[in-house]
């Protein structure tokens, strides 16, 4: 606990710090010597070809995947094997998944209250009040009593964002939040994310929405074969990419 509170007083400390991170699946080297520092309030977009390790990288931040070498520090807490410490980190990190992963047996409101009640031990009425506030912000408050199965994909993803925000996280991770959505629903989710970025949330987004990257990102990171190949502010990244692989990738996703 003391580490967490100490870090909150110290605003200059980076939100996330990864040094020399290496990860293998069996013999397969997924992440190679990743060094990445994310400051508080920074918005990062990660892109790269399929299978390059983007999901794996951000899932290491809240230990949905375990790494084998290197260090991760989140909000001043250094990651260890200790489950208490891992849970302490997870409480500061909100995550939004490609396939929403809402709990289908719970209503939208209950989805948003779960961690408040069971992790933060808040009384139910307080939890519901905050949940309604966030559902309001993602413009879905009128669906609070419905079950996830009764909502459209875009609505479900907005609920998932509200659910993560209800923990009042310090940083939000997005893993391709729009790639399972029909085109007409992508915008409603991106609008919520842009709004969140404006409010100063620290965000790491894996996405191929280059429009989003251009409007909100402070830095764009390009990964290939488990390595960070290039990182730069969006103008530089899109207009003057340095590496050949980045140029090839950009021509593929922007070129048609």
């Amino acid at each position: 606990m003391s580490e967490a509170t100490a870090s909150r007083d110290n605003g200059t400390e980076p939100m996330i710090e990864m040094t020399g991170l290496n990860k293998w699946y069996g013999d397969f080297h997924v992440l190679r010597d990743i060094d990445l520092t994310v400051q508080r309030g920074e918005r990062i977009v990660i892109c790269g070809p399929s299978g390059s390790g983007k999901s794996t990288l951000i899932r290491c931040i809240n230990r949905l995947e375990a790494h084998q070498q290197g260090g991760i520090t989140v909000g001043g807490i250094t990651m260890t094997e200790d489950i208490k410490r891992i849970e302490q980190i997870r409480r500061q990190v909100g995550m939004v998944f490609q396939h929403f992963n809402l709990f289908p047996h719970l209503s939208v409101l209950e989805n948003c209250c779960l961690s408040q009640i069971w992790v933060q031990k808040k009384p139910r009425h307080e939890a519901e009040k905050l949940a309604m506030e966030y559902l309001e912000r993602v413009q879905i408050a009128e669906q609070a009593k419905k079950y996830p199965g009764q909502l459209s994909g875009g609505q479900q993803q907005r609920v998932a964002i509200a659910r993560a925000l209800c923990m009042r996280p310090e940083v939000m991770l997005f893993d391709e939040p729009t790639s399972a959505l029909d085109p007409e629903m992508i915008k409603e989710v991106l609008d919520v994310m842009v709004e969140l970025a404006r409010e100063g949330m620290t965000m790491i987004c894996v996405t191929h929405e280059m429009g989003f990257a251009k409007t909100v990102a402070d830095r764009v990171i390009f990964m290939d074969q488990g390595q960070i190949i290039e990182e730069a502010p969006p103008e530089t990244f899109f207009n003057h990419p340095r590496s050949e692989r980045t140029k090839l990738f950009l021509s593929q996703i922007l070129g048609h």
């Binding site: 809240n62 949905l64 997870r90 992963n101 779960l114 069971w118 923990m167």
Partner: peptide, 12 residues
């Protein structure tokens, strides 16, 4: 993904 979503919310 259900279990992972639970983990990401800090549930034990």
């Amino acid at each position: 993904g259900q279990d992972e979503a639970g983990m990401s919310l800090g549930l034990g």
